[in-house]
Design a protein around this nucleic acid. Structure first.
Length: 789
DNA sequence: ATATCGTAACTTTTT
DNA sequence: GTTACGATAT
């Protein structure tokens, strides 16, 4: 074998066949940890080595991150310039790029705006208001998700009208006017020159269906098509792929039906289950050997997933060692769960010095769970990084900044205009804005056009001062438009920030959170600078503001370069973790109603999806998986009792170690661990921990804030608080107090009261107490400092 | 026109 | 525990 094909030696038999079989349709069913990415990257490299031009290869991934990583790996084999010439990216980014050059055919400007979920929701809310519909019945969120699902199934408004079952479905859901909202929504997006995420796929379908010459152009261009995570494609994506592959049939899809976790956004597992129907001649390769995990982990995961009915036949196995069993740990509360995990990481770091922080991941079902975990890690001085969430791009100041940039590129962009027409405050209030909207509607023009032509609308009752302000606003936006057209993205962004008044407004900040806003905007500017620099290195590059905005519209937080935190524990949702691997994985919140999620318990197929999600979580682990759950969790402001997740019970016993005690005393002493307080001789008893809760919050101010944060962790890092050692009186065995209804009690802070009810037993019992002065409170007896009187 | 405060409603998961 | 919206006061 020649030197340049030496990478083939690194593959097992099936993997190599999958790489070398380049022609015709094929499906690779890749079990978790079976080297899927390796096959995909080698296959692309192999195509290039065999002489296929990278311009003729289309490789679609699910996340920008996956695309970037794959590109890097390919460039180590075939060199950077070839790797960069590939058509590789997410469905959304690749087709946004294509649409950008073809948009005029569909009546869109090529600088069309991409509405994010926020923009879309604002628009839907507005439409519901305009149509005078009840927003309790037409909940914007639900309406939007219905529209999204219609679009993903290519049910346009006209298709909707042709199929009575659509109307029936919405009538049944008591939303007969949904079609009116849908129609308005599409109309207003079109007028605004905007597409939402689903439109990027839907309009691509429209483009390929309506313009045979365009279809044939891209069919010829994409002679080889590869789709990663095929199990997560929705109908719209499926149709695009099928249309493009129709000519050459060189389509290679890679996926694992057991890891399909995106049905909530329209992913259709049938696409992979029925691949053979679409391509009867398709070759199927199954990668079943897991190279990632221990036998215990693979076995445990298999024992769970086998309960699903909808799946392809496959047998994932490994020749790795048995390894440790899966540990299951119970903690009294979610906060203590977080502390347990932090301590556990500390312990592993001591006993296994080779492990770095980056070898650990903490996975959870919902983003909201990260708070407690962050808190615990911070207090233990463990570096961590939160992956995902959309916190950066959904910050107000970032959205405002982006809105200015969007508006000057596409003045039809109504969402952007409404965001910033009066920010910073320039005296254009709601009444004026309403008048503008009505006028725009009346003349079938955009708001921006109305503002620009105010002098032709003397009958509009807007006073001359406001008219002047509006005039200044539109001139400013047009000036920005010139920057966008002539300067690079960074230079233009800098000018816009300054001249819009945003910078001045933010720079005058005094409050810490305002300063943070200023810094965020600076960070945005930095990323614009990076963008311009990076574009310089690419042939026929485009470093304009428009190009930047197009890019950034499809970015998530994960895609921001964050090199400062290299060696750190990864925190993310299970969804985010797909495709990643870590030596040690904690899965937090293994509770019914959380994982599986509350929303999913009704339908079997939903539970199956949650189970696949759990399968994904478990199979991220190489050496060790630790499942934790809490008996009480603070959700949604209130604490509620939790039960162990059914998924833990579905794991075959032989892979489980349930022996770790759910020991209250131990966990509480964890909280008081020396590493937190910085003095090792202060391990105090349980009674004192209750004391500390109270003590710390005393400075928190009023009664209500104490009450609300009762179960939260005290904040040690900002104040000058020393742990109070247990005084004899407060050590009065708070947890062991025995209360009966009617008992008069005295609370250190709330005063005297009467017990009206007692719930639960033992250490977790709660009492409802009617305090004479402040009314009814429910308290956890193990924390409350109550005396009988 | 704007600032401030209080309340209601909300949480899966993401491009 | 947060956020977004609406009512009220300035």
């Amino acid at each position: 074998m020649s030197e340049e094909f030496s990478y083939l030696d690194k593959l097992n038999d099936v993997q190599r066949q999958a790489v070398e079989c380049t022609e015709g349709p094929m499906m690779i069913i890749a079990g978790a940890g079976s080297g899927k990415t390796r096959v995909l990257t080698y296959r692309i490299a192999h195509l290039i080595n065999k002489g296929v031009s990278p311009f003729n290869i289309l490789a679609l991934t699910f996340t920008n991150k996956a695309a970037r990583e794959m590109q890097e790996r390919i460039s180590t084999i075939v060199g950077a310039s070839d790797a960069k010439s590939l058509w590789m990216g997410t469905f959304h980014s690749v087709f946004a790029k294509i649409l950008r050059s073809e948009a005029p055919k569909l009546g869109f400007p090529s600088n069309f705006t991409i509405y994010d979920t926020d923009d879309a929701q604002r628009l839907v809310t507005q439409i519901i208001k305009d149509l005078a519909l009840d927003k309790e019945i037409y909940k914007p969120r639900q309406v939007l998700s219905r529209i999204s699902s219609l679009k993903n199934n290519l049910i346009t408004t006209s298709v909707y009208e042709r199929y009575p079952e659509c109307t029936e479905a919405d009538s049944a859901a008591r939303r007969p006017k949904l079609i009116d909202i849908y129609r308005q929504y599409v109309e207003r997006c079109f007028k605004a020159g905007a597409m939402d995420f689903d439109d990027l796929l839907l309009r691509t379908n429209e483009l390929l269906a309506r313009f045979p010459d365009v279809l044939s152009k891209y069919q010829n261009m994409f002679r080889y098509i590869l789709v990663d995570e095929y199990q997560d494609t929705n109908h719209s994506q499926y149709l695009i792929v099928r249309a493009l592959a129709d000519r050459f049939q060189n389509i290679c899809v890679v996926g694992d039906d057991s890891q399909s976790i995106y049905s909530f956004r329209g992913a259709n597992i049938a696409n992979i289950l029925h691949f053979n129907r679409d391509y009867p001649s398709a070759k199927v390769f199954k990668l079943e050997q897991n190279y990632r995990s221990t036998k215990n982990i693979v076995g445990a995961a298999n024992s769970v997933i086998k309960r699903n009915k909808e799946k392809l036949d496959k047998n994932v196995w490994t020749s790795n060692t048995d390894g440790e069993k899966i540990t299951v740990v119970c903690n009294p509360t979610d906060n203590e769960e977080a502390y347990y995990i932090a301590r556990s990481i500390k312990k592993f770091k001591e006993t296994e010095p080779d492990d770095n922080y980056e070898d650990f991941a903490i996975l959870y079902r919902t983003n909201a769970q990260s708070r407690a975990l962050e808190d615990a890690l911070r207090r233990h001085n463990i570096p961590y990084k939160i992956w995902g969430g959309n916190s950066f791009y959904s910050k107000k100041e970032i959205k405002d900044f982006l809105a200015y940039m969007r508006l000057c590129i596409n003045p039809k962009d109504e969402e952007a205009l409404l965001r910033i027409i009066n920010y910073p405050i320039r005296g254009i209030g709601n009444t004026t804005i309403d008048k503008l909207i009505v006028t725009a509607h009346h003349y079938d023009r955009t708001i921006f056009e109305v503002i620009k032509n105010l002098d032709k609308l003397p009958q509009l009752s807007i006073n001359s001062g406001t008219r002047a302000t509006l005039d200044a606003f539109s001139s400013m936006i047009e000036a920005f438009g010139v920057y966008a057209a002539t300067d690079d993205a960074f230079t233009a962004g800098e000018k816009i920030l300054k001249e819009s008044g945003m910078l001045k407004k933010l720079a005058s900040a005094t409050e810490p959170e305002e300063i943070a806003r200023y810094e965020n905007v600076q960070e945005m500017l930095n990323s614009m600078k990076d963008f311009v620099e990076t574009q310089k290195e690419i042939a026929d590059s485009d470093s304009t503001l428009a190009s930047f905005i197009q890019d950034v519209s499809l970015m998530t937080d994960v895609d921001r370069s964050d090199q400062d935190k290299k060696d750190s524990v990864a925190l993310m949702t299970v969804h985010m973790a797909k495709g990643l691997e870590f030596k040690t994985v904690y899965i937090a919140g293994m509770e019914e109603e959380l994982f599986p999620s509350m929303m999913s318990s009704a339908e079997r197929s939903d539970v199956e999806e949650e189970r696949r999600l759990f399968y994904v979580a478990l199979t991220r682990a190489e050496k060790r998986a630790i499942l934790t759950y809490a008996r009480q969790r603070c959700r949604y402001g209130k604490t509620s009792d939790c039960e162990l997740s059914r998924f833990v019970q579905e794991i075959d016993d032989q892979y489980l170690d349930m022996s770790v005690p759910a020991d209250m005393a131990k966990s509480v002493s964890n909280i008081l661990d020396a590493s937190i307080f910085g003095s090792s001789d202060k391990i105090v008893a349980r009674g004192a921990s209750a004391q500390n809760y109270g003590q710390t919050y005393r400075r928190g101010g009023d009664e209500t804030s104490y009450q609300r944060k009762e179960s939260a962790k005290p904040t040690f890092d900002t104040g000058n608080f020393k742990p109070v050692s247990a005084s004899s009186s407060s050590q009065a065995k708070a947890g062991e107090i025995n209360l009966n209804v009617g008992q008069r009690v005295r609370h250190e802070r709330f005063g005297d009261g009467t017990v009206t009810a007692v719930e639960g037993s033992g250490i977790d019992s709660k009492a409802i107490i009617d305090f004479d002065n402040i009314g009814i409170k429910k308290m956890l007896l193990k924390f409350a400092k109550i005396q009988k009187i």
